[in-house]
Computed example of a mutant assay.
Amino acid sequence: MSILDKIKSLGLELPPAPKAIAAYIPAIQTGNLVFTSGQLPLKDGKLILTGTLGAGLSIDDVKAATEQAAMNGLAAIAGVIGDLDKIKTIVKIGVFVASSPDFTEQHLVANHASNLLLSIFGEAGRHARFAVGNSALPLGAPVEVEMTVSLG
């Protein structure tokens, strides 16, 4: 099954490749690695959720937003390499979480992205990861996801 077919079988759709909203590019390839810029939970050019974890938002509240940001990362990669089936492995993801000072479960927010990538790529989706809290993220987003993949 192709990666696009797997995404569709999960009831998801790969969005169009994101456009930069500042002075950067969404993804870049160097050798057999592709690095994405941080991707926000944008859909049709708008954030699907805003806010801060621990100050109005819960871990469950941000599941769809975290998955959307991860899907936008895959779309950015597809914009560079064309076919997501060229991905050999998800190497690493980083998840930034807009958090109140007392919120300490950023790793559980990051699980939403990690679990999605495992569902799509199977063992090739198992990756290294970081999850950090931030006082604020661009545009008021609750989460931002970046990733590095290797190509086969």
Rank of each mutant, 00 (worst) to 15 (best):
S2P: 12
S2K: 11
S2C: 11
I3V: 15
D5C: 12
I7L: 10
K8M: 07
K8W: 00
S9R: 11
L10W: 06
G11F: 09
L12M: 15
E13C: 13
L14E: 10
P15H: 14
A17Q: 13
P18E: 14
K19P: 01
K19D: 08
A20E: 04
A20W: 01
A22T: 07
Y24R: 08
I25T: 14
I28M: 10
Q29M: 13
G31L: 12
L33D: 06
F35G: 04
F35W: 08
F35E: 08
G38Y: 04
Q39K: 07
P41S: 13
L42C: 10
I48Q: 04
I48P: 07
L49R: 12
G51C: 13
G51W: 01
A55I: 00
L57H: 08
L57D: 06
I59T: 15
I59K: 10
V62C: 14
V62N: 05
V62F: 05
K63N: 14
K63I: 05
A64D: 15
T66I: 08
E67Y: 04
Q68C: 11
M71H: 07
G73C: 12
L74Q: 03
A76S: 14
I77W: 01
A78F: 02
A78G: 08
A78V: 08
A78T: 03
V80H: 05
V80I: 13
V80S: 08
I81L: 11
G82H: 07
D83N: 15
L84G: 11
D85F: 05
I87R: 03
K88D: 15
G94N: 11
V95I: 11
F96D: 10
F96V: 01
V97S: 08
A98Y: 01
A98D: 04
S100E: 05
D102E: 13
D102V: 11
E105P: 01
Q106W: 00
Q106I: 01
V109W: 02
N111P: 00
N111S: 12
A113C: 12
A113Y: 02
N115D: 12
N115I: 05
L116E: 05
L116D: 03
L117K: 07
F121P: 03
F121E: 02
E123F: 03
E123M: 10
G125T: 05
H127N: 14
R129Y: 12
A131Y: 01
N134C: 13
A136S: 15
A136D: 10
L137R: 08
L139C: 09
L139K: 10
L139W: 02
G140M: 12
V143F: 02
V143H: 03
V143C: 10
V143D: 06
E144D: 12
E144I: 05
E146R: 10
E146F: 04
M147F: 03
T148Y: 00
T148H: 02
V149A: 08
V149F: 02
S150G: 07
S150P: 00
S150R: 04
S150Q: 09
L151M: 05
